[in-house]
Design a protein around this nucleic acid. Structure first.
Length: 701
DNA sequence: TATGCGTAGT
């Protein structure tokens, strides 16, 4: 008897212990402490179904869906909560099909299960299927299930359907009304939202906060402040919403005043204030606030680190990261990004290697760092090692190979992609253009339309550039009308590309017309028109556009001066050209770069002032590039100066050893001067140096 | 003590 009594006591004590551990496990799960939750779970001598369910949701919350599934499959007993938690895990990560098959297998579905499925489809944008699930739900439908559907309609812009269902359902609750209201406030329809809010049968603080957030989102700070003042007893969410409004409007000092007035500050409030300072690069205040924060989570750390990185304080960011008490991938990725922008690949890689659990953003950052540094082999190795790739990863590789001149590899990656988006198409199309394969670019535009992917300004800019280079006026005109039809005609990008296209096709009047019709002209628009006149030999017009530009208070940049100098060069305006060139630094604070020298060499050379041109090149502060020597060589041919030609050509051979046309040009110059031996020698050196053809555009390396 | 629908911060 006594033994039985003792056993009963022991069993009760054990049950209490499990109960207590479960409470702790739940707490850990909710605060995102997965590692601690796992340790506790593993150390528990006895577990019940609640224990497993808590662990399951801890895994799901941290995105460990497949581990959660393994735990689910291995559970000794499963109840409805276990099934629902697993369905929710799939639903939260967009795995609609997995959620559905579990729902179909589930023995006894309850209200939670049906609500989860409605919500799952609604969030995936599958509103008709969601509605079908709701309609099939047997017996009395719970309010939550209706609410999931109302929310789905509202978030997808179907406000009328949301209200219709709200009126149809037997017992709408606060969430029903707020779900419908959220549809209006979150899509910026504040007038309708205000009417709906006034007519609401039931409302609570969430309703008021939804309205407040709507004003902030619409950028109506006065409306927000006035509305806030009407809230009877605002809670932390109300305060934070208004605080965020001030921060986003850049009124950081007003924000700080509000922050100091807050009756209660939680971690979200601190983070909003911190991000406000960081956004305005007020890093000293940001750092002070960060020090004062009673709690810091991964958002706080990411904010401060990316702020320091943006301010160029990489060492401070790194020192701070070394003190981070937990592993925050986003903060470390921000530092990696900073290193990579400065081409400090080794430092970035060190951080990367030190991260135990990386997300796809982290992998993509390292990947694009390698690409930007031209380290394509390392990029490919990393790409192949990635546990998960997304469209960004693939697009990064495509753009990398395209910029590296290896179009064959770029296209190879592109063809293997499962889901191509507009950026993927743009990367190959602009790659073809950059590598001079204009016909391929236009061909891929046709394929893109067949793939029903939307073209954007970048697509059109690349295609127009292809047309310009092919001088394909008719195709260019077709793109022009496509731009009008797709509504992109008012983008300054598109307009600028059109100006260049018409100008390069010799239709300078049409180029000017586009320019005149453009609503928003930027510096590129002016430069494109000046370039266009230059290209067509209209020196006077180019200069008059330049003067008009200055009269409009647009500051000329380096590109403008290239245009002006080449206009003077082609029109033979030597004195004008020299005047502009010599006044670059004084009048426009622009240091001449190689392109300017090339224009000058061309200008003086064409006019037969070869020695002056040569002296100018020799006196350059910077290293002359191939363009400069090329201009000189061209002028030498024009004026039959084979001695200077040889000198310029030798420099060109150093800079562009594989470019056959340089050798051919020099050989012709020698031949024209009657120096047949020299000509033959130059031709022979083509074979000698192993120069066969221009560098392979298709990148067969 | 574990699972669903509406509000704030990357």
């Amino acid at each position: 008897m006594a033994a039985a009594g003792a056993a009963k006591v022991t069993a009760a004590a054990a049950a209490t212990a499990v109960f207590r551990s479960n409470q702790e496990l739940t707490r850990l799960a909710r605060s995102g402490q997965l590692a601690a939750a796992r340790r506790l779970f593993d150390s528990m001598p006895r577990r019940n179904t609640v224990t497993y369910n808590a662990m399951l949701s801890a895994l799901a919350r941290n995105g460990r869906i497949d581990e959660a599934r393994a735990l689910f499959d291995g559970m000794p007993r499963r109840n409805a909560v276990s099934w629902n938690a697993m369905i929710a895990a799939f639903s939260d990560h967009g795995r609609v099909a997995d959620a559905r098959s579990l729902f179909d297998e589930m023995p006894n579905r309850d209200d939670f299960s049906w609500t989860l499925m409605v919500s799952c489809y609604a969030r995936a944008g599958e509103l008709e299927i969601a509605r079908d699930v709701l309609d099939r739900m047997p017996g009395d439908k719970c309010a939550a299930c209706y609410n999931a559907m109302i929310s789905g309609y509202a978030k997808n812009g179907r406000f009328d359907d949301a209200v219709k269902l709200l009126k149809e359902m037997p017992t709408p609750d606060l969430v029903s009304w707020n779900s419908a209201l959220a549809g209006l406030t979150q899509s910026g329809q504040m007038v309708r939202a205000g009417q709906f809010f006034d007519e609401m049968v039931e409302k609570d603080l969430v309703s008021w906060n939804l309205m407040l957030e709507g004003f902030v989102r619409a950028g109506d700070l006065d409306g927000a402040s006035t509305f806030f003042a009407r809230i009877e007893s605002p809670n932390v969410v109300s305060w934070v919403t208004l605080l965020n409004g001030y921060c986003r409007a850049g009124k950081i000092d007003d924000a700080r005043e509000l922050f100091d007035k807050m009756p209660e500050r939680n971690i979200v409030a601190w983070n909003v204030m911190l991000e406000g300072y960081v956004r305005l690069s007020r890093m000293e205040e940001a750092c002070n606030l960060f020090e004062e924060m009673p709690d810091k989570n991964s958002i706080s750390w990411t904010s401060i680190v990316s702020g320091l990185v943006r301010a160029g304080k990489l060492q401070e960011a790194k020192d701070l990261l070394d003190q981070m008490p937990f592993n925050c991938v986003a903060a470390k990725t921000a530092l990696m990004h900073g290193y990579l922008q400065r081409k400090m690949v080794g430092e970035a890689r060190q951080i990367f290697d030190g991260i135990e659990v990386r997300d796809t953003v982290c992998w993509n950052t390292m990947l694009s760092g390698y690409v930007q540094c031209g380290m394509l082999e390392e990029a490919m190795l990393l790409f192949q090692r990635m546990p998960n790739t997304d469209t960004v990863s693939w697009n990064t590789m495509i753009a990398g190979y395209a910029q590296g001149g290896q179009m064959r590899k770029a296209v190879g990656i592109f063809k293997k992609m499962n889901r191509r988006n507009t950026v993927s198409w743009n990367s190959v199309i602009s790659g073809f253009v950059q590598n001079g394969l204009f016909v391929d670019a236009l061909h891929h535009f046709m394929l893109m339309r067949r793939d029903t992917k939307r073209a954007d300004w970048s697509t059109y800019a690349s295609c127009l550039s292809a047309c310009a280079n092919l001088a394909a006026l008719q195709v260019g005109r077709q793109f022009h009308s496509l731009l009008v039809r797709s509504g992109h005609i008012n983008d300054s990008f598109a307009g600028n590309a059109l100006i260049s296209t018409y100008a390069k096709c010799g239709r300078i009047l049409e180029a000017k017309q586009i320019f005149d019709e453009m609503i928003v002209k930027d510096i590129v628009s002016w430069n494109s028109l000046i370039d266009g006149y230059a290209l067509n030999g209209h020196g006077t017009e180019a200069i008059s556009v330049f003067l008009e530009m200055k009269a409009n208070n647009i500051r000329p940049d380096e590109v403008t001066l290239v245009g002006i100098l080449s206009a003077c060069s082609r029109a033979g305006f030597i004195d004008e050209g020299l005047k502009y060139f010599n006044s670059m630094e004084k009048e426009y604070s622009l240091k001449p770069v190689a392109e300017h020298y090339a224009c000058m060499a061309d200008m003086l050379g064409r006019a037969g002032r070869l020695n002056e041109a040569f002296e100018l090149v020799q006196g350059m502060q910077i290293q002359p590039n191939a363009g400069v020597w090329g201009a000189l060589l061209g002028a030498c041919r024009l004026h039959k100066n084979d001695e200077l030609a040889r000198l310029a050509a030798e420099k060109l051979f150093e800079l562009e050893p594989r470019k056959t046309s340089n050798y051919v040009l020099l050989s012709n110059i020698s031949a024209e001067a009657g120096k047949w031996d020299e000509a033959e020698k130059t031709r022979a050196s083509i074979k000698e140096k192993g120069v066969h053809k221009p560098p392979g555009l298709a990148g067969s390396s």
